[in-house]
């Protein structure tokens, strides 16, 4: 059996870092070493930031987004359009849309998609709260910004059905990405792009 190279505290740090996406055991060890070497400038501020974030983070009870306040900043922002509600899978999708700066409405974070494989049904997602949120509202467009995958679109169809015929539901377009060349696109994307063609 190999002897531990360092104390249990350092091993715990390496193991915790190794659980982060994109980091394996070797890169976690490198990251831990970098933190330890720059204790004052990196390790201490990072540990403070992690502790503060862990204490302050709240999940918004209205939309499911994460922030340090409940309701979150996006739900309370008076400059946002109340007649647009964008439904996304995850918080990362909210950040992506905000980064793009193309949307100024409200959000609703589902927390995933329906998955037959993982046995994730409607009760595991924030679908009931979306239905509650839309009950009695008129003139609101619900934009389903879900993945163009079987699971994402199955979720979109399920939500459309649950919302009923009285709600204006739209979804994001599927097709050729900006900078994409037709020759490199897969058959599925090409088929979706062809079906979504529109007059110029």
């Amino acid at each position: 059996m190999k002897a531990a190279l360092s104390g249990p505290e350092i091993e715990r740090l390496v193991q915790a870092l190794g659980k982060l996406p994109g980091l394996g055991p070797r890169s976690a060890r490198r990251a831990a070493l970098a933190l330890i070497k720059k204790r004052e400038t990196l390790l201490d501020p990072l540990s403070t930031a992690l502790r503060e974030a862990a204490a302050a983070i709240k999940v918004c009870s209205t939309c499911g987004h994460i922030d340090t306040t409940d309701p979150c900043g996006l739900c309370t922002d008076p400059r946002r359009d109340d007649h647009l509600l964008c439904v996304v899978e995850d918080v990362g999708d909210v950040w992506a849309l905000e980064r793009a700066g193309v949307y100024r409405g409200r959000y609703h974070v589902l927390g995933g998609t329906l998955s037959a494989l993982d046995g994730r049904g409607p009760d595991a997602l924030n679908i009931a709260s979306l239905i509650d949120r839309m009950t009695g509202k008129t003139g609101v467009e619900v934009v389903l910004a879900l993945s163009a995958t079987v699971e994402g679109q199955a979720t979109a169809h399920y939500i459309t059905e649950r919302l009923g015929a009285g709600v204006n539901v739209t979804r994001l377009g599927h097709g050729v990405p900006i900078g994409g060349e037709l020759g490199y696109l897969d058959e599925g994307t090409l088929a979706a792009a062809f079906k979504s063609r529109r007059p110029l």
């Binding site: 079987v150 199955a154 169809h157 459309t160 059905e161 897969d186 058959e187 599925g188 088929a191 979706a192």
Partner: peptide, 28 residues
């Protein structure tokens, strides 16, 4: 190597997508 992209052909129809998912999960 892809041969036929049935999933993308079913994406627009809730019924087709539900059938596809049901068949795949039953077989699985």
């Amino acid at each position: 190597e892809p041969v036929r992209a049935y999933a993308s052909l079913a994406l627009d129809s809730g019924l087709a997508l539900a059938g596809l998912t049901a068949a795949a999960s039953v077989a699985s």
